[in-house]
């Protein structure tokens, strides 16, 4: 495995990134390769996301967007390269020139600092809305159920679903379910939020309510990476727009540049289809 210079050698715990000069990126993806069998899905991806910034990833279906997002919380292992979040290597510990995969317990702990919102919500259907949100802080962070429940109710209020605490997910609309899923991710107070096409499974009239919640988070300075086809959302909220195609980042920059004056033919072709 080739390991380009990694940020935090040794145990891989968070170094004080904010104190020394220009802040270290919240997310640092370096030369990441990933294959499924003989299919190479990520062909050397480099990406930096600064704390408090919103990065929107665009790209055609099958270009590796979900896979990239999933490597960032180690739902997929990388074959080459490395990823760090908030100063810690994701899934690995560096010792000398080798990366050793962490124990499951340590990986799970890292994941609690990274919220993930799925295209299909993946709420737990047998638990009430409140229990969906309370589960992880109680069982993974060992917080007291009472405190977590109070916090969960505040989160539900924040996503506009205070009255749905005792409903089961199937009794909610898709837009409401996705807002619960966002509240569930927020309950862990993550340093980073990852969204994989959060509105793609929704009826058109429900897209707005979910995007509004995400915009709200963006304005409060939450660091996030959002895979979406909503160009309007990208233009309004993104600090950086990244265009991916065929396992590579083809082009990235400010929304005005990438969306209005794309340099690459493939970006232009893609945008002409979705705009």
């Amino acid at each position: 495995m080739s390991a380009p210079t990694t940020p935090a050698a040794g145990t891989g715990t968070a170094t004080d990134g904010t104190a020394d000069g220009p802040a270290a990126p919240m997310v640092d993806v370096r030369a990441v390769h990933k294959s499924f069998g003989s299919l190479e899905v990520l062909k050397g991806v480099d990406l930096e996301v600064r704390a408090g910034e919103v990065t929107v990833i665009l790209g055609p279906s099958g270009s590796g967007k979900s896979t990239l997002l999933r490597t960032i919380n180690h739902l997929e292992k990388v074959d080459q390269g490395w990823i760090s979040v908030d100063g810690s290597l994701v899934g690995y510990r560096r010792s000398g020139d080798k990366l050793y995969e962490l124990r499951e317990r340590e990986i799970l702990k890292q994941r609690t600092r990274i919220g993930f919102v799925f295209q299909n919500f993946n709420l737990f259907p047998h638990l009430t809305v409140l229990d969906n949100i309370v589960e992880a802080p109680v069982s993974a962070l060992k917080r007291s159920r009472k405190d977590v429940t109070e916090a969960a109710r505040r989160l539900l209020d924040r996503v506009g679903l205070a009255d749905k605490a005792d409903a089961y997910p199937k009794q909610l609309s898709g837009g409401q379910q996705q807002r619960v899923a966002i509240a569930r991710a927020l309950a862990l107070e993550p340093r980073l939020l990852l969204f994989d096409e959060p509105t793609s499974a929704l009826d058109p009239e429900l897209v707005g309510e979910v995007l509004d919640v995400i915009k709200d988070l963006a304005h409060q300075g939450t660091t996030m990476i959002v895979v979406t086809h909503e160009i309007g959302f990208a233009r309004e909220v993104a600090d950086t727009v990244v265009f991916m195609d065929d396992g590579r980042i083809v082009e990235q920059g400010a929304p005005g540049d990438v969306l209005d004056a794309p340099k690459h033919e493939r970006t232009r072709a893609f945008l002409s289809k979705v705009l």
């Binding site: 739902l75 799970l108 702990k109 994941r111 609690t112 993930f116 589960e135 069982s139 993974a140 569930r184």
Partner: peptide
């Protein structure tokens, strides 16, 4: 997706 969601939430 249920297992993935649980993994992503850091459940043991």
């Amino acid at each position: 997706g249920q297992i993935e969601a649980a993994e992503a939430l850091g459940l043991s």
